[in-house]
Design a binder for these strands. Structure first.
Length: 278
DNA sequence: AGTTAAACCTGGTTGC
DNA sequence: TGCAACCAGGTTTAAC
């Protein structure tokens, strides 16, 4: 489910409410992508700090109290079908509730039917295993250091289709399958165009489109295809105004031509062959 | 070295 | 209606 906007919506929902909370217990459900990597009971008594986001990962810092047995934090990923809820009175966990961080300010609960998500303890963001997982991530989309020039240079380094390069996240993080399709439509670029054949002006237009698409989705609370919700259980609304994603055989809103669906990297790509040029 | 396929797992939708 | 086939927001790991 979650691409950058959904993860950021989630971060904003838990950051202030959990700030300063003390962990009272941790409950584990079925295994996620990786093991937690520490004794869950060792987290009790630790204090939650400001929640950060890097790419589609969330970082929940935990500061040890008097017993400094285990300090560091939790690196969380929502995978394909995950969502976090912050619950004042948590009901009994359901079959897809695989992680609870019980605190003095509510229970942070991960629901993830497909279990591609992860919760991994790390001593620090720049220590293993968190550092390794974040190491391959490209620049944040709204980092001012990411410029049309540097973005274009990054695109020049790949021969793969531009859609694949966007999904890989080395040039810019955050655009998954929905927003990569939408940004390419907005920029008027064919998804199969070789990355290194994109001109400077078109790269600039694509970067602007990625930023605009992600920002718009953020405003709308993300996209809810089937099961994403924010920490209060609210759905996102971006999917209702997607121009191409999920609209195969429907007319393009700009030119009226049929929107096409192709498969790239085993993922669906939607585009308008008239509006998006090689 | 860069690119692509396979793998992880469950559930909803589609089509015969 | 039943059941198989296909589809789904991600990313690591393995293989060309």
């Amino acid at each position: 489910m979650p691409e950058l906007p959904e993860v950021e919506v989630t971060r904003r929902g838990i950051d202030l409410p959990l700030r300063g909370a003390q962990v009272t217990a941790v409950r584990l459900g079925k295994p996620l992508r990786w093991p937690l990597g520490c004794d869950p009971s060792a987290l009790a008594g630790q204090q939650v700090g400001p929640v950060l986001r890097r790419g589609k990962y969330l970082w929940v810092p935990l500061a040890a109290g008097s017993s400094a047995a285990c300090s560091g934090g939790l690196l969380m990923h929502l995978g394909m079908s995950g969502s976090l809820a912050l619950l004042a009175q948590p009901p009994a966990p359901g079959p897809h509730d695989h992680f609870d961080l019980v605190t003095t300010q509510g229970t942070l609960r991960l629901n993830d039917p497909r279990r591609f998500g992860a919760v991994v303890w790390s001593a620090a963001l720049d220590a293993a295993p968190a550092a390794g997982l974040l190491a391959r991530l490209g620049p944040e989309p709204f980092d001012p250091a990411l410029t049309p020039l540097s973005f274009h240079a990054a695109l020049q380094r790949h021969r793969a289709p531009i859609k694949s390069v966007l999904l890989a996240g080395g040039a810019v993080v955050g655009a998954g399958n929905i927003y990569a399709c939408e940004a390419l439509f907005q920029a008027g670029i064919h998804p199969a165009l070789r990355s290194d054949r994109i001109s400077r002006p078109r790269a600039e237009r694509l970067l602007a489109a990625v930023r605009a698409t992600l920002a718009r989705a953020l405003d709308l609370g993300g996209s809810t295809l089937r099961d994403f919700s924010d920490v209060h259980g609210m759905s996102g609304a971006f999917q209702t105004e997607a121009a191409v994603y999920g609209r195969a055989r429907q007319p393009c809103g700009r030119c009226g031509a049929d929107i096409r669906r192709i498969v790239q990297l085993q993922r669906s790509t939607y585009y308008c062959a008239h509006c998006q040029k090689r």
